[in-house]
Design a protein around this nucleic acid. Structure first.
Lengths: 230, 230
DNA sequence: TAGATTGTTAATCGATTAACAATC
DNA sequence: TAGATTGTTAATCGATTAACAATC
């Protein structure tokens, strides 16, 4: 009994930020970065809400979790707010990462220069295709996947970007977990079944596409109904 | 008064599926497709829940919205269920789409053969770079972006995949809306401000990356606390 | 039949929205 | 000061989870 209480008291403040809030933070960061470039110094929750089509109260609640305190009548200090939000997402320091699967998507990601703004530093690519091994794609070397486990251990890599075909994803993921990987950013459209202490985030391309095609069907249906009602 | 009531009665059943449910549907489809390949004929909500780390009750509620009725003791007919889920997402018929921005990510997407499983058929690419125009990338022709508006109108294209740099995204999106586009799948990490009847789905790479890096920070922090407590 | 599984109705939980006092 | 904006506390809403009856 006493033990349970203790655990709850320790864990509660840690998993503190609601995931919907967490998913909105990058939107704030993106907007604020744009505003900063125009030399704006303060920004109000109303302004942010209007630009992002959100509710001002929600914006204030969201921004509050970063710990920044706004000034009545003025709003939030742009620099402070940006720094705090970036810190909340852990985007203010770099994490080395491996990318596994140097196909067309993997190569595109290797070429994406902006990952450093998001705390990500890709240090090597891996592929099982001998023809790709040894190549340098956008300045990043491609190594044989056989060396993956060893390199994760040796370099103490925490983050893996998984861009292999669906069929190979589960197996490689398990290997990496074995080697001590802490987080996997999964681009393969398949569910990875791994120990629950491993952080898995799915890039979820099919998810957002599904929402889009479904909404489109609804919209078309609705328009047809309106026509029939006239 | 009477008018408002009428609108509500018409709209309620249309926007019926909760978005969290909608976002889980692709996961079900992916799993069921794999099971189908093993010649399984029936599947229970418990089995699905176990494979996807979900709650069985939630799975049953989710599957119910597709209209499929399960058989007590047996579960759901795999083929029926798959067909119904694909229909719910509108993945059972093809939609022509344009892709705008044939950079490395855009090219990677042009090469992605599986979009047809998701109801998507990319018929042309567009780019503002004269050197890319005229090229054929993975069988898909690249046209000048100056022709975009006209082609959307002429071919009655409903879906656009937007893979241009952030700075250009808003302007091109507005152009496409002008031309009558109904839905935009946005890969640019910027918020598009458009009339609210336009369907915008963000690929949200930064969102999922943000969740990952945040959770990683929490995890590391927690582990440090545990060490200090020992 | 007994047992497994579905599907529905009710309870709980958490996020969003509203109301309002505090403050520059 | 008056007015705009913040931040907190309460109310509402919707999704998840629980309980249980129905059925093969």
């Amino acid at each position: 009994m006493i033990k349970t209480e203790k655990i709850e008291r320790i864990e509660k403040p840690l998993g503190g930020i609601p995931e919907p809030t967490l998913r909105r933070l990058p939107k704030y960061i993106e907007l604020l970065t744009r505003l900063k470039a125009t030399n704006m110094k303060f920004v109000s929750s109303n302004y942010v809400a209007e630009k992002l089509n959100l509710d001002p109260i929600q914006v204030r609640k969201d921004l509050a979790i970063s710990g920044t305190i706004g000034k009545p009548k003025l709003g939030f200090d742009l620099d402070d707010l940006l720094a705090a939000l970036n810190h909340t997402l852990n985007w203010d320091n770099l994490h080395d990462a491996f990318l596994i699967g140097v196909g067309s998507l993997g190569s595109a990601l290797l070429g994406y220069k902006n990952f450093s703004s998001y705390g990500l530093n890709i240090v090597a690519g891996f592929d099982s295709d001998q023809r790709k091994v040894g190549k340098v794609v956008n300045g990043i070397k491609v190594l044989p996947v056989s060396k993956l486990e060893n390199m994760i251990k040796r370099m103490k890599i925490n983050i893996a970007i998984l861009t292999v075909p669906s069929e190979d994803a589960q197996e490689i993921a398990e290997e990496m977990v074995e080697a001590g990987i802490l987080a996997i950013w999964n681009f393969a459209p398949t569910h990875l079944k791994l120990p629950k202490d491993v952080i898995v985030e799915n890039a979820q391309l099919t998810q957002s596409l599904g929402v889009l095609t479904h909404k489109l069907a609804e919209k078309t249906k609705k328009e047809k109904m309106i026509i029939h009602n006239n």
